[in-house]
Design a protein around this nucleic acid. Sequence first.
RNA 1: GCGCCUGUAGCUCAGGUGGAUAGAGCAACUGCCUUCUAAGCAGUGGGUCUCCAGUUCGAAUCUGGACAGGCGCACCA
Length: 544
Amino acid sequence: MQPLDIFKIQNLLVNAFTMAIEPFEIQEVAVNIERPKEKTHGDFSCPVAMLLAKKLKKQPLLIAHEIVKNLKLDPGFITNVEVAAPGFINLKLHPQAFYQTLQRTLEENEAYGKNDQGKGEKILLEFVSANPTGPLNIVSARAAALGESIANLLLVSGTDVSREYYVNDAGVQARLFGQSLIAACNRINGKDTPAPEGGYQGAYMDDLAKDYVKVSPAPDPGEWGMNQVLQWQKESLLRYDVHFDNWYSEKKLLHDTGLVKETVEQLKKMNLTYEKDGALWIKVSEFGAPKDEVLVKSDGYPAYFAADIAYHIQKFKRGFHKIVDIWGPDHHGHIIRMKAALQAAGYPHEQFSVIIAQQVNLLEEGEKVKMSKREGKFVTMNELLDQVGKDAARFFFVMRSANTHLDFDIEVAKKQTEENPVFYIQYAHARICSLLKKCADNNLQPSTKAVDFESLQDAESFLLLKEIMEYPQWVLESGKALEPHRLVIYLQSLAANFHLFYAKQRILDAPADVARARLALALGVKTVIRNALGLLGVSAPDQM
RNA sequence: GCGCCUGUAGCUCAGGUGGAUAGAGCAACUGCCUUCUAAGCAGUGGGUCUCCAGUUCGAAUCUGGACAGGCGCACCA
């Protein structure tokens, strides 16, 4: 028989409770098993009596006692069942079950934490998608960290995830970018040519110009420049350990193929458009958007929105069940329009969701750093990586929920690296590695077999056993919610409990069987930390 | 004016789709290294969960309103 894991345990409990409430003959109440906040309340808790109270019009405490009477649980599995006010039923898990989950952790190793809840589902995750008109900035860095971590969480749940970067290489800005590049070329030749109105300037444009004048024969400046910038972006992302499965060119895949025109025609046929002031409008206001939007401008060119609708329709047509986009804060007004358009065109708009990676306030010595792309004055992702490093950057961006306006104090992050929470977790990992090395020197082999887990009896060990056991559930929940920061919360707690364990329980100088058991426990913690940090794109160093 | 995000300890933020005494890090103060990494551990202080009402056994969480900060509301993308 395979050792227990958290999902099996929960299933057993849900089944037992479902059977125990059958006599009440209430159908609509679903049993759920929670983890109590307070350790003294046990390992699992079931609030179902309180849910039944409403339907039965009886006191939850009384119902809880009746449920407990009906409850059939193996004493070799659950050792203690307690009713607590106002109506919780608290359960204590048998130590053997804990030991089994640790054994499973060690056996599964790299695979520990995976689940199969996402099997059969195809999700398209689009993120970063910055215009190829300049280096990636801080908000892109946040979106990149979020996107990659979410993708990883979905991947380990068996979901078929595709990470996509939409390259905005068409339209007005492409022309503008080309003109800006020519202006920069003139500037380095000594002519005083300012960038065009609304164009791009800054040191990176001059760098680009220096390279451009060397290319012969001179290619199309807009196309060449954007391609160049895209290469920069790809390099930055690689440095950041963020990978994309697909780079989707707006120009090549939507405009050159005629898909944008086709989509517009389709919307016209569906009677979703009308002409006004020489432009073609789409009636999204009938589907919840605050106002109608221009689809084709009066100059005959399709508006950005037309391409975006075509793109999202393609996402569905390409066979994805769910579509998740991560956008910057300046695009949040766009969500309702996009949903309306998809609904209007008859696509399942409820399967389309957008995560807003909220703004990042970059602080330098407590002062807000003003960022302005137009003036070429902004801190790039590369500069951030130079200053704080990949681990800190990835961790920092992912440790807070996406929709909080994040304060990133770059001075603190680089000056006081010891205070960075990422080190606290990495340190726990390094400590364990050091232990393992020491025990190898002492001829003590960590083993997954023939370990006398029974010698783990102290409170600190059980805290760790419990947290190791719960890890797969955190992975599942973080993934389902598309919220990697939950995993960070978990990791901080796991690391804290390991440091506590380490301070209180000796390992190497304990009797051999105890030492082996504690070592196995430490190995379990190491496994989980390494796996979890991996999902977040943060390294787990062997020594620090 | 309309819409979106945010408001929890001095600071930065958690709070698992309504649950038990609201938590963590940092900062402050006090202890702990001849002992497996002190980038650590233990302890102390710190709260009207912005405010007002409502929903119910029960609200930081849901609803309505007010206030404050941020961001959107182009034939830009």
